[in-house]
Structure formats: structure tokens, C-alpha cells
Design a protein around this nucleic acid. Structure first.
Lengths: 209, 209
DNA sequence: CGTCATTGTAAACGGTGTTAAGTTTCGGAA
DNA sequence: TTCCGAAACTTAACACCGTTTACAATGACG
């Protein structure tokens, strides 16, 4: 078996160090040498736990997906579908604004073929829960029965991703040199409310059951 | 003046070569050495025309913004605001799907502080034209007079960016290894229609003037 | 006809991901 | 108790990257 006792948590520590760099310097700031420096090992040691940098980033992102999904879920405390949709929208945006580096790594990094099945599965977790909320609204009679819950879920997702992506990148309300971060936050959250208002107005059942 | 006659179009050729690489290999595939190889000069020569790689990418992106804006404008042939909004949505998505590498460079690349004022100005061109279309709809009496045209414009932009970004990245309908490209196109365009339907339903004036 | 700014290059620097080869360490069999 | 071998870990190197420095070639102009 193992002739030399290794640190059993080393793989986990490597991922934590990587996640820290992603937030401090962005996805482009991650280098194998910097990760090694932080964990106190040589760069080559990382390759004992991860095949290459892509796999390291992949596992880092998969852990973040679970954190992201759990965080949003924990904020959806309301009992009605309407409440949960609004809470989900603000939680999604808030997480992205608080973790911009990780958000970019999760949703805007790498080539199409580089996404692992695990990551795709993790990403779909939130989608399925959102769809359940839409269907809850249909059951509760607040959304029209003709509403396609899959399309409605996609509508919510693309709008929230677009808002978060543009707000993070500085391409929507200007970069930090021009507009203060809290001003961007305020305007982005106001737009999240406008989006939620639009969905609810659009999907509301004209005649309650 | 110039003692040695230089190629007067070299700067433009450098940008063209860069744009070609962006589409073939993505923004991460651009290297000064590869650009130099394609134009038949040494890497050092690029620095006679651009201060560094960031400035080269910046000018490449600025040229693309104009192309992008012109392309969308040329597709908005309808006379009514309703027509133009739907045409604009499909044109936006189609351009992104046809030029995914450039789209990523334009909207998802680099740090917040790296965006030049020129690029910000170019990006706002489309936004202002979209707002004019919304206001045209208000004047035409098809949109409610209480509609905030700035908010409505942001709503359209974030939704179309989110849809395009996710469709390009393979994170929405699966990557090319799983789902054929034309299937992604079809579903994305269907969602663009759903988005347009939602906006129009939401903004329609309840009592026409 | 020589001056000299302009155009262009080769070579190098410190950085990157990754690999090949070597060293250290220790559980467990003899 | 010794010592073998496998696992853990490192050093040195490779080819690549963006960028800079030093240098050579060119040709318009005084």
C-alpha cells in the first residue's frame, strides 16, 4: 500500500488554494506554480492528484457549483412560487457579484468540449429545482396552465445569467474605474426586480382556478 | 517622415489575422507569435503598431463591435417596433452563434479595468438604438406609456446576452459532443421568440391611444 | 553622398504547463 | 533487524508564452 504517509487532505487543499486564487486574481490568475506555492509543495506534486490544470479547474468548478446551488436554495425561504422566484433571482445575482472570479470560471471559461459530464450534471441541478418552482406556481393557480415550465425556466436562467455576466464584467454599468461597485450592485438588483416583475406579469393566470 | 516605406495596411492586416485566430481557436488561442506567423513578420514587428497584446485585442474587438452593430441594424428592416425587436433578437443571437470566439472576446474577456473607453462607447451604440426602438413602440401606442424605456432596453440586452452566452458555451443545451450545433441553434432561436413574446405581452398598452 | 529616422529582426528574460528522471521516506516481509 | 520496493516528492528540463533590448537594413532628404 502506501509506503510513505501522504497528506490525505492534499487534493482538497489544492482545490481550496485554486478557488482562493480564482477569487483573488480571476481564472486567468491560476498557475500551477502559484497553487504549489500556497500549499507548500512543488508544482509537480499537484500532478499526483490531478492529471493536468484543466482537471484541477474542473474539480474546483464542480465544488463551486454545489456551493452555488446550496446558497441559492437556502435563500428561497418563501412558501409561494412568486416569492421563491424573486428570492432566487436576487440570490443568483448576489452570489455572482460576491464571487465574480468563480462565476466567470463556472459559466464563461474554456472551450465547449472541455466541460465534464459531472459539471453539466451539477449545473442542471439548479435548473430542475427552478422548473419545480414554476410548476408549483402552476399548481398554485398563480401561473397560467398553458405555461411551458421548461421554456419559462430557460427564460429565467438566461436573463439572470445575462444580468450577472454583464454586471460582473463591467460592460453593463461601466467598469469599477467609472462606477462604484455598490452602485453596480444597486442597479443590477433593481433590474433583477424588473425581470421578476415581468415574468410574474407575463405568466399570471388570467382566471384563477 | 518615413524613411523606409512600410506596408500601410499592416496594422489592419494584424487585426484581421487576430480576428481569424479568435474565430478558429478562441480568444485564448491568440498568441503574438501566431499572429506574426500569419502576417509573415516577426513577433516584434507587431509592437511597432500596438503597444501590447491587450491593445491589439482591444482594437480587434472595437472593429468587431462595429461589424456586430451594423449587422443587427441591417436585419431590422421592419417598420413597426414590434417587428424590429423580434428581428433584433434573432440577429443578435445569430451573430453570436456564427462568431462565438469573437462574441466571447467582446463580452466575456479580460478584467474589469481592461475595457477601453472606446470599447464602452462602441458597445453603447446598440443599446441606444434599441432604446429608440422601445420609445418608437411607445409613440406608436403599442407599448404602455408608463414603460421605462431604459429598463426595458436593459431587460432585452441581458436576456439576449444570457441566451447567446449560454448557447455558445455549451452550458445550456449541452456541448457539441452531446448535441448537434444546428439543434442548439434551433432551440436557442425558439427561446429568442419566447423572450420576444414575453416582452411584447408585458409592455403592450392595455388601451391603445 | 552621407545622415539618420524608420522598419524590421534575432536573441534573450522571466514567466507558463508539463514531463522525465532522480531522491527521499517508510510499511512490511525476510 | 535489515533492507526491498513502492509511494511521495523534488529538481531540472522542454517548448511555449509576452515582452524588451540591441542591432541591422533601408531609403528619403539635406
Amino acid at each position: 500500500m502506501s509506503a510513505r504517509p501522504a497528506n490525505p487532505h492534499l487534493a482538497s487543499e489544492i482545490i481550496s488554494a485554486t478557488a482562493a486564487i480564482v477569487e483573488e486574481r480571476g481564472p486567468e490568475g491560476v498557475t500551477m506554480r502559484e497553487v504549489a506555492r500556497r500549499i507548500g509543495y512543488s508544482p509537480t506534486s499537484i500532478y499526483l492528484h490531478f492529471a493536468n490544470k484543466d482537471e484541477l479547474l474542473d474539480q474546483t468548478v464542480n465544488r463551486a457549483y454545489e456551493w452555488f446551488a446550496d446558497e441559492i436554495e437556502s435563500r428561497q425561504t418563501g412558501t409561494s412560487a412568486v416569492e421563491r422566484i424573486r428570492q432566487g433571482a436576487h440570490a443568483y445575482l448576489a452570489w455572482g457579484l460576491a464571487n465574480p472570479g468563480m462565476y466567470r470560471l463556472m459559466f464563461e471559461w474554456g472551450y465547449l468540449g472541455d466541460i465534464s459530464p459531472d459539471a453539466i450534471f451539477a449545473r442542471r441541478r439548479s435548473w430542475r429545482r427552478n422548473r419545480q418552482i414554476v410548476e408549483l406556481g402552476i399548481e398554485q393557480g398563480v401561473f397560467d396552465r398553458s405555461l411551458d415550465s421548461a421554456v419559462a425556466t430557460d427564460v429565467m436562467w438566461v436573463a439572470m445569467h445575462g444580468l450577472t455576466s454583464l454586471a460582473i464584467s463591467g460592460r453593463m454599468y461601466g467598469n469599477p474605474n467609472m462606477v462604484a461597485a455598490d452602485e453596480v450592485d444597486r442597479r443590477a438588483h433593481a433590474l433583477a426586480d424588473a425581470l421578476a416583475d415581468g415574468w410574474l406579469a407575463d405568466w399570471t393566470a388570467t382566471s384563477p382556478l
